[in-house]
Amino acid sequence: MDHASSSEQARREAGYSRWPARGDVAQTIGVVGGPLALLLGLQVKYTIAQMWACESGTAVAMVHVTALVALLLAIGSGVAAASQWRPAARGADPGDEGGPVGRTRTLAVVGVGISALSALVIVSQWLPQLFLDPCRQ
């Protein structure tokens, strides 16, 4: 048996695979998706307003579209987290259950909470832009 096949067999025995499981990806997106949408939306709005949108006259529309996309991404990450919580929540009281089920429940709740908080911050940043011109110096 050569080295490549033995390492592949060892990885399979340890439970590792080449690609992460779908649930693990959804948990990760649920936890980091909302804050990333918040930060990315804020950065894009500043870049749009500073660089070219104010000169071309499309700043107001672009700022609103960017805020809406960021809000939808934050909500989508919360939905991804909630989709992982539902299957893991079946059964008895979780208590202090560990392992994959306990981890899934914990990350799902954290993902829903942090995504909701991120969506709230995105909306609160969007409110002044509804009343004030983003290009006003």
Rank of each mutant, 00 (worst) to 15 (best):
V65A: 15
I48K: 05
A67L: 06
A74C: 12
A74F: 07
Q50I: 10
L68S: 14
C54L: 11
D96G: 14
L71P: 06
A67Y: 12
A61Q: 12
A88N: 14
A53Q: 06
A80T: 01
V63G: 01
T58P: 00
V101H: 12
V63E: 08
G76N: 01
S83Y: 03
E97Y: 00
P94S: 09
H64V: 00
R90F: 03
A82Q: 04
V69C: 12
A92Q: 12
V79E: 02
A70T: 05
H64P: 03
H64D: 10
A61T: 14
A59Q: 09
G95V: 00
S77I: 07
L72R: 02
G57I: 08
A59F: 03
G95P: 02
A81I: 01
G102D: 03
G95R: 08
S77C: 07
V63M: 13
A67W: 06
A49N: 03
G78I: 01
C54D: 07
L71N: 11
S56Y: 13
L72E: 06
Q84K: 02
Q84P: 00
L71H: 10
A67E: 11
D96W: 11
R103G: 01
D93E: 04
A61N: 08
Q50C: 06
G57V: 07
M51R: 15
L71F: 15
A88S: 12
A89L: 01
E97K: 01
A80H: 04
C54W: 10
W52A: 12
A61W: 04
A89V: 00
P87K: 05
P87G: 11
A89C: 00
L73E: 04
A92P: 02
A70G: 04
A53V: 07
A59H: 10
S83R: 09
V60Q: 14
W52K: 08
L73A: 15
G76M: 04
I48R: 07
A49C: 05
T66P: 02
L72K: 07
A53M: 04
T58S: 09
G57K: 05
H64G: 13
V65R: 10
W52M: 13
V79N: 01
D93L: 00
M51C: 14
A49Q: 08
I48V: 11
W85Y: 14
A59W: 04
W85H: 07
G95A: 10
A59L: 08
D96E: 15
G99N: 10
V79W: 02
G57C: 07
A61F: 09
H64I: 03
P87S: 08
R90W: 09
A74W: 11
A89M: 05
L68Y: 10
V101N: 09
W85Q: 03
V60M: 13
V60F: 14
S56N: 15
S77A: 15
V60S: 08
I48G: 01
L73R: 00
A88D: 05
A74H: 04
A88V: 12
L73K: 07
S56W: 15
V63T: 12
Q50V: 14
G91P: 07
S77V: 05
A59P: 00
V79I: 15
L68C: 06
A80W: 03
G98T: 13
V60C: 05
A92F: 08
V101G: 01
L71G: 13
A89N: 03
P94H: 11
V60I: 14
A61C: 03
I75N: 04
L68A: 15
I48W: 02
E97C: 06
G91D: 09
D96V: 02
G78C: 05
V60A: 12
